[in-house]
Nucleic acid binder design. Structure first.
Length: 157
DNA sequence: GCCAACGTTGGC
DNA sequence: GCCAACGTTGGC
C-alpha cells in the first residue's frame, strides 16, 4: 500500500475574472482556461484530490495570496477546448484526443488579508529565490510549492 | 497603460 | 531544427 504524500500548489487567477470571493460563492469550480503545457502537466500529472492550494490574485492592484483551496477532483478534459464559442476553444483538440486538462478546486478559506507579493518578496532567502512567485518574469499560473514553503507563506498572513 | 519576459507559431 | 515575429502575462 502506497501512501501518497499530500502536495501543495499555487494557482493564479485574475480577480476581475475569478476571485477568491467567487470561489467562496460557488464552492467548487472547474479550473478551466489553462492553456500552458507546463501548468497543464502539473494539474494532469501532479495533482491529487485533497492537495492544498494557495489562491493567488494576479494582475490586480495588490497581487498576492488571497485564500486557500483544495483539489477536489482528479484531472479531466477541459470542456471549453471543445466549445467553438469559448475564448478557450482549441481547434486542434478533439474529444478523442483532448489537449487541455483541469481539476476542480474547492474553496477552503479566505485569508484575513491578502498577503501582498511585496511582502512575499521580502522573504526571498527564506522562500528560495527560485520560487516562481518571486522569480521575475514568471508567467506560470499553476506550480508546486513545498510543504515548508506553503506553511511559511501562510505564516505571513 | 506600459513594457519586459516569456511561450508559441510558422517560414525557411 | 532554427529563430524572428507575435501574442500574452502580469508587475508596476
Amino acid at each position: 500500500m502506497t501512501r501518497i504524500r499530500r502536495r501543495y500548489w499555487v494557482m493564479k487567477s485574475e480577480p476581475d475574472a475569478f476571485s477568491i470571493d467567487d470561489l467562496q460563492r460557488v464552492g467548487t469550480e472547474p479550473w478551466n482556461g489553462v492553456r500552458n503545457y507546463q501548468a497543464r502537466n502539473f494539474m494532469r500529472d501532479g495533482m491529487q484530490v485533497g492537495d492544498e492550494v494557495l489562491f493567488y490574485h494576479s494582475n490586480t492592484k495588490v497581487p498576492g495570496i488571497a485564500g486557500t483551496a483544495t483539489v477536489a477532483s482528479p484531472a479531466y478534459p477541459d470542456d471549453t477546448q471543445f466549445e467553438r464559442k469559448s475564448p478557450y476553444f482549441d481547434p486542434k483538440a478533439s474529444r478523442e484526443e483532448p489537449r487541455w486538462f483541469l481539476v476542480d478546486v474547492s474553496f477552503k478559506r479566505k485569508l484575513s488579508r491578502t498577503i501582498p507579493l511585496d511582502d512575499i518578496k521580502q522573504h526571498g532567502e527564506r522562500l528560495g529565490e527560485e520560487c516562481p512567485l518571486i522569480k521575475r518574469g514568471n508567467r506560470l499560473s499553476v506550480f508546486p510549492v513545498s510543504a515548508d514553503q506553503y506553511k511559511f507563506l501562510l505564516s505571513l498572513e
